[in-house]
Nucleic acid binder design. Structure first.
Lengths: 185, 185
DNA sequence: GTCTATACGAAGATAGAC
DNA sequence: GTCTATCTTCGTATAGAC
């Protein structure tokens, strides 16, 4: 019951503070459960909790992509950027992507890092498949999909530092034009 | 004399481990100076040290950009990607961009975050100016410059997680074509 | 002015009481 | 099975000996 809450809370704290600044103590407090419960649910300790948090966040984004890509790759890409735009703006530039946070910080175990890699692969794979389905050659579909994910993630970091949504909006504008022209070719 | 070494060492550790996993203790040990010296040189504590480390890294990248942009925006962009490719590959996927690390993690003080914002602004500003000088309209120059920086930074994070240089190479390929076509227009 | 020694708090993790 | 209390280590920061 509270297991899900702990994972969601950990994902939220990681995307705000980063992985190392997210202590199991505060995750437990935030979820209203004692510290011992966390280790009961997650005997693998912090690495296991971080791994599940990354997977949880990755699946959430992947679900949005699945839904929005039905209208085509350009709509999917736009939804991807809208999603990150909301995360950044609704948290007053104090939240970003937990997958990036885990990718950039050193962690004792490496399961969480593998989960981060899987999230990136899933997202770009979904975008690439949609691009191929709309006439883009496989090689270029992979490259464009990687570009979309990388640019969005990088833009989120820039927006946080600059306290401005401009990078995210600028990048979205350029990529919308680029993908629209690619599917048309 | 050792001040510079401490700053450079801190920047190196931050890009590998992240900001919060970089302790002043280990920075001092790595520089061969006692812990007290660190606080003698940086009375502002960790925030000051992180701020100078970010500025140091930002200036180093900016210097490369200044040099390579003389041959035009496409060459500058390529050099930017080559630089990050070397950082990632020469450190066996265990190093990235310290500016992103600081942008993504929570910090006690906020001077370091301001330094990160300044680094991003400087880099994209340099690229945008070069694009304008080569006939790109101001608005689009800004957007393309933001895209280049965001995509490179995001790709670095993806490369680390996936232990592959593919994202960086894919992104560089697409952006080379995009910028080449933009300056030609 | 440099560095040793230490204060103080918080981290991850576990043992064992209920 | 849940939670409290505690062990150990490491973090930032400083006081004061050379």
């Amino acid at each position: 019951m509270s297991r899900q809450q702990i994972v969601a809370g950990a994902a939220d704290m990681i995307r705000r503070r980063g992985l190392n600044a997210t202590s199991i103590r505060e995750v437990a407090k935030h979820a209203g459960t004692p510290l011992g419960s966390t280790y009961h649910y997650f005997p693998g300790g912090k690495d296991q909790l971080a791994t599940e948090a990354v997977r949880w966040a990755g699946d959430a984004v992947s679900g949005v992509l699945t839904a929005k890509l039905r209208k085509g790759p350009v709509d999917g890409m736009k939804a991807f950027f809208t999603l990150w735009r909301e995360v950044v703006s609704e948290n007053d530039f104090q939240a970003g992507c937990p997958v990036v946070a885990v990718s950039v910080e050193e962690t004792s175990g490496r399961e969480a890092l593998a989960a981060a890699a899987e999230a990136f692969t899933t997202w770009s794979g979904q975008l690439a498949e949609s691009l191929r389905a709309h006439g883009v050659t496989p090689g270029r579909a992979d490259r464009l999909a990687a570009l979309v994910v990388a640019a969005a993630e990088g833009a989120v970091a820039m927006c946080r530092a600059q306290r401005s949504l401009q990078p995210l909006d600028d990048v979205a504008t350029e990529l919308t034009a680029l993908l629209a022209s690619a599917v048309r070719t």
